[in-house]
Simulated assay, not measured.
Amino acid sequence: MMLHSTMFFLGSITVQEPLSSLAAEYQAGSPILLEKIKMFLEQLDNILLGSDDYEELVNRSRDQSVSDYIVMFFRFVTAGEIRTRAEFFEPFITGLSNSTVDQFCKTSVEPMGEESDHIHITTLSDALGVAIRVVYLDRSSCDSGGVTVNHHDFIPVGTSEKQEEASAPFITLLYRPGHYDILYPKPSSKVLDNVEKMIV
């Protein structure tokens, strides 16, 4: 299962190696890598400050060179959270991949193009403090003419039951074998009316 993107591009070279291998490049002051980090941070600032309008944000997210940086960033966050809470994740990782926490991060979390699994989403939800809903279609009932939509919610560690019941997950992903897509809620007509009033 991939979180949207599959490769990391350095110029015209496709790299599929652990992100930790980029540390040496960063420490050496690689101008290409530093420029890419600067570009990512500018993108992040624009989002956080609300400098980009919706259309600009959509266009940038459709640009693979931009979306790859976002995926790379979240892979860093995920690997960092797993390593920080290694004692918690170790039994799951050992049972899943028969490797150490560090090996798992280097081979299954950091490389672009590696599939993401339950551990990855749980970790990312915890690290960001954001609830994530994964929706998937169950075709086991197709013989009877129906398709069932199921979901699983990933709730961050430390969320109280009251908070969990009061709020719906902030991010919704559609799982398709080998891939996740972001689902956006359809705005209600009241929201659209209010937006139109603000524009006019």
Score class of each variant (00 low, 15 high):
Gly145Gln: 00
Glu114Cys: 14
Ser21Glu: 15
Leu22Lys: 02
Asn194Pro: 01
Gln64Thr: 14
Glu110Pro: 02
Leu49Arg: 14
Ser65Pro: 05
Asp52Gln: 11
Lys36Tyr: 01
Ala79Phe: 00
Glu81Lys: 11
Met2Ile: 13
Ile32Ala: 01
Gly95Arg: 09
Asn150Tyr: 14
Gln64Glu: 02
Ser140Tyr: 00
Asp102Lys: 09
Arg85Val: 01
Thr172Gln: 07
Ser188Thr: 15
Gly95Asn: 11
Pro185Val: 04
Tyr26Ser: 09
Asn98Gln: 08
Val157Gln: 14
Lys38Ile: 12
His4Thr: 13
His120Lys: 02
Tyr69Gly: 00
Leu57Glu: 01
Gln43Glu: 15
Ala166Ile: 03
Leu19His: 04
Tyr175Ile: 13
Val135Ser: 06
Asp53Thr: 09
Leu22Thr: 01
Ser116Asn: 13
Tyr175Lys: 14
Lys162Gly: 03
Arg75Asp: 10
Leu192Val: 04
Glu42Asn: 15
Tyr184Lys: 07
Ile199Ser: 07
Ser144Trp: 10
Thr148Leu: 12
Leu33Ser: 07
Phe76Tyr: 15
Tyr69Ala: 06
Glu164Ser: 14
Ser30Val: 01
Met1Ile: 14
Phe89Asp: 09
Phe170Gly: 12
Glu55Cys: 05
Glu42Trp: 03
Tyr136Pro: 00
Ser67Leu: 04
Thr122Pro: 05
Asp117Ala: 11
Pro18Ile: 07
Ile47Glu: 08
Met39Arg: 15
Leu19Phe: 10
Val101Pro: 06
Tyr136Asp: 00
Ile171Lys: 00
Asp117Phe: 01
Lys162Phe: 12
Thr122Met: 11
Ser160Asn: 02
Thr100Gly: 12
Met112Phe: 06
Asn98Trp: 06
Asp153Ala: 05
Gly158Cys: 05
Gln27Met: 04
Thr84Cys: 12
Leu96Glu: 07
Asn194Cys: 06
Thr84Arg: 15
